[in-house]
């Protein structure tokens, strides 16, 4: 366990050095959030039809996207990918730690600190100035925190799948790209999921990706009540467990394949 913990701490120190980048990131996120909110503002004033979320909820949802954007599993773990590409992954297997959890904890560490460093300033600035609302209740806030934690785990599990797929070189490259595309579109990071057509909602609900953004955001805005939320947390955790199991199975197979091939 302490091996994972020290991996985590070392990564945190490295990331803190990029504080200038973090500041630039916050400015960027505020800008993007601003563009989107103006677009939705225009949409809302153009139509009197009933919408799945109120304007205020939508604005809050949009800010939450900006705050939590790094939870979207855009990329594979670059170090792990490099070690797969140049074959040095074989040496990683020698480490006295389980490779899956080693990569997983590294990925989690790479995620947690940047997400916090980006989220905090957005809350501090967007709440008083740009129409972002506080959680509807203290209980909703707690539920949101729990759901974000689950989202981080889910995000790592998806990243792991994308990374592991690289063991099957060219095909894996496609799979990892496909996963990133699906995750960004179907998590709600491009357009809040409730705005997609009604016929698409059951599909979106069944897939794992909404656990990355949509579930935590909607319990935060009160669009989902606490009673509705509990099964949704289960949705996040069960999908995470399933993806971890698939990932571990694929990693074992992929590594065996590598050894057999003498790569």
């Amino acid at each position: 366990m302490s091996a994972y913990l020290s991996t985590f701490q070392a990564r945190g120190r490295v990331l803190l050095q990029y504080r200038e980048a973090a500041l630039a990131g916050v400015v960027t996120q505020l800008f993007w959030g601003g563009i989107r909110i103006m677009i939705y503002e225009a949409f809302y004033r153009s139509s009197s039809a009933a919408q799945p979320m109120s304007y205020a909820q939508t604005v809050t949802y949009l800010w939450l996207i900006q705050a939590m954007l790094l939870l979207v599993p855009w990329r594979v773990d670059p170090e792990a990918a490099a070690s797969i590409r140049d074959g040095s992954v074989a040496y990683e297997m020698v480490r006295p730690a389980d490779l899956y959890w080693y990569w997983f904890s590294r990925g989690l560490a790479q995620r947690v600190l940047p997400v916090l460093m980006r989220a905090a300033p957005i809350f501090i600035i967007a709440m008083p100035f740009f129409g972002m609302q506080a959680p509807v209740s203290a209980a909703a806030a707690l539920a949101w925190v729990a759901s974000i934690g689950a989202a981080a785990l889910l995000s790592c599990a998806i990243t792991m799948l994308a990374t592991i797929s690289l063991l099957w070189s060219v095909a894996g490259d496609g799979v990892s790209r496909l996963l990133a595309t699906l995750a960004s579109l179907l998590s709600g990071s491009v357009v809040p999921l409730p705005f997609y057509p009604d016929w698409a909602q059951p599909v979106l609900n069944a897939l794992p990706f909404r656990g990355l953004m949509d579930i935590p955001f909607r319990v935060y805005t009160g669009d989902v009540t606490l009673g509705q939320w509990l099964p949704l947390l289960g949705h996040q955790l069960i999908w995470t467990a399933v993806l971890v199991l698939i990932g571990r199975w694929l990693l074992a197979r992929g590594l065996r394949r590598l050894v057999v091939q003498g790569g």
Partner: peptide
Amino acid sequence: ALFGRFGNID
């Protein structure tokens, strides 16, 4: 999809 919900923008 957004146009499906709102119909138009301005």
